[in-house]
Design a binder for these strands. Structure first.
Lengths: 216, 216, 216, 216
DNA sequence: AATGAATGAGACTTCATTCAT
DNA sequence: AATGAATGAAGTCTCATTCAT
């Protein structure tokens, strides 16, 4: 079963097949446990061809990260339409995010788990994607604050912190939804939206929770 | 020269030294990249002794997970006093959680990253700990609901998702606080508490955010 | 961009380009370390073409040896004019030899180092050249002997040994002159000539150095 | 045939067995063509043990060079007694040199051919040995000049050049003697001694050969 | 005349694990 | 209680070589 062993394909096509296989293996086994043998076999080619096209295990992994990161940010961007109210934009973005991670669980595993588990060549690659998504959320939170006519209700770094928290929560939830049978991506998105939007709304209305004074 | 070679220690002590070393190496390198050689050297013993006491790499890793999970749940339990108001209990629990993980980063890495990145023998081990923490949060939510004279009304898996989101948000915030000058870890924790508590409170008061009706 | 890709050249020309590239790579990297990939790239052609024209790595190396050996003996022959006194012929021959090897260091490396370092297919190829050079020196010695009105009296293998010693001495001197400021290559050649000619002359006049009698 | 598979030997012994095998394989096949598999098999151990003790192919090769170089210089030093006339010292040194290289042809191949054929980590290792031998010969030539009461007959750099030439000649002759059946080490030594001593004697008596004036 | 696509075989190296003391 | 000596298995990567156009 699997890929029919079609021969003599143009390079670009073969490269994509290899990346498909690599994402799957890396996502399931992890970077170290993945073997180039297995990847090559799943791609339906011989190992030397993988090396010819993608240089090394490290480069192959980097290429996977880059491709998956690009695809994910593109999916989120495509899911959102500017001009709509902030909560609607957030909801659309979250849905796109969770839908994409649910459809590409191995890709998300590569980005969220595997790339972070290993050293510097890879972490930086993911950081770029994350920065972009955080910036998107930050903008949304700011818009929401403006819509609530509460400038300058939230100091700038508070907004940034909330965006970070939101993205982190989404990332974790996506992995959890993928790993937990019976939880659909949409449910996870709704839970988060609910949670986040209520919290944000409260904050913007000035209902801050104050830490107790008596601490060691 | 180098580590003083204290010999003939009782077995229990030696085992702890080995686990210390193993947690450190596993936490930093990951399960696959960690080598028994390095662990034995860091523990100051020969490799056969590690095998004599801990059987295999897999068993050693399992022992690490178990020890670190126990330590973490104990720390959280110790940080919370029952009888206080729910928000205070949550705040105390969060503080204990983050204090412990900050003090034992390798242990936390083992639990949160490494154990999840690899197959079934290990994931089950972490599940136990996760269950306990979720139970703690669930209880808090129940307490809060009682305080608000309301039926908690949150299904079990919703609570699990919230716990997951909370941890993800916290990790994100911790990393962000670490990388952003002018933001202390405690401020970040307060932001998180704020965010979470408001959201939870709203949810329990029945203020649910409603997804828009027009969807594909 | 890069090397101009002149296509459709007549076979003879292409072959020379390939041999040029091969001699350079073989001379610098050695037979085993040289890769057909690198040779093809330096020659500006694709690998299959190299195989089409030169069959195999072994055949390619043999062709290199043959070409370089022929060139070297031709250069020496061209540098010497018969009829001149023997010492003048030797001096001219040495100069031609060193001029050629200095101008074609990779070729000389192929002949002198690489070909000897590997087994039988190649050593035989060099032997032919060596035979010719030894014959040249032998003839010179004979001429010198005639000039001195003496029977040369040097057995064949003695001459071969002297030739070997001469080449070794010359190589050593060349490297030394190269590394020592204030010593030109020509001075080194003169020193060698001096050394060699005196020794040869003495030998032919029958002034043999006698090993001491008391030996174990 | 060969090494009986004796097990559990002390490390120092095993290391020597490995070096023995490595020198033989490296000397016969060359650095690149030698395979660690073959070396391990000839040494009668498994490959991992070779790596455990000697780290890498490169380190193993370096260790070979170092051991053989030390052995060779020691043999030459042991063959010479100071206080004897210079020609006697030279003769003894040459005999020791040729005897050693004849008894250890693979070692000599490693030093003379293989180490020079490959890049910088190794060439430096041989250079040290060579420097020591050249210094020894330089001293001898100077002593000979003094004995001939011809100070300052030979300028300093001329002495150095002659020593270089002598050593180079000896090196080449040794390899040639090893590779040529029917030529004993002692014959080679005598030929070189004859050649060199006569030349040196002539030079020191002022009989210099003058290059012809008419050159391009 | 020339090449892009592809691979079988084998190299170096590392690792978890055991044996004998 | 503890270790020096040793290895089978597997991993990444390279290379000479061929096929189909």
């Amino acid at each position: 079963m699997g890929a029919v062993k079609t021969k003599r394909m143009p390079r670009a096509v073969r490269e994509q097949q290899m990346l498909d296989a690599a994402v799957r293996i890396f996502g399931q086994r992890g970077y170290m446990a993945a073997s180039m043998d297995e990847i090559a076999e799943l791609a339906g080619v011989s190992k030397p061809l993988v090396y010819l096209y993608l240089n090394s295990k490290e480069d192959l992994f980097t290429a996977c990260i880059r491709r998956e990161a690009t695809a994910l940010t593109a999916a989120v961007r495509a899911g959102v339409r500017q001009g709509l109210p902030a909560d609607r934009q957030l909801w659309d973005g979250l849905r796109a995010f969770f839908a994409h991670t649910a459809e590409h669980p191995d890709g998300w595993s590569v980005l969220h788990l595997q790339a972070r588990t290993h050293g510097e060549p890879f972490a930086a690659e993911v950081a770029a994607m994350r920065t972009e998504i955080v910036a998107f959320v930050t903008r949304l939170v700011a818009v929401a604050a403006r819509e609530a006519h509460r400038d300058p209700g939230l100091p700038e770094h508070e907004v940034a912190g909330l965006a970070e928290a939101l993205v982190g929560a989404a990332e974790s939830l996506a992995a959890w939804a993928n790993a937990t049978p019976g939880v659909t991506a949409r449910q996870a998105a709704a839970t988060l939206m609910n949670f986040a939007w209520s919290g944000l709304g409260d904050l913007m209305r000035g209902h801050m929770w104050a830490p107790p004074a008596d601490e060691s």
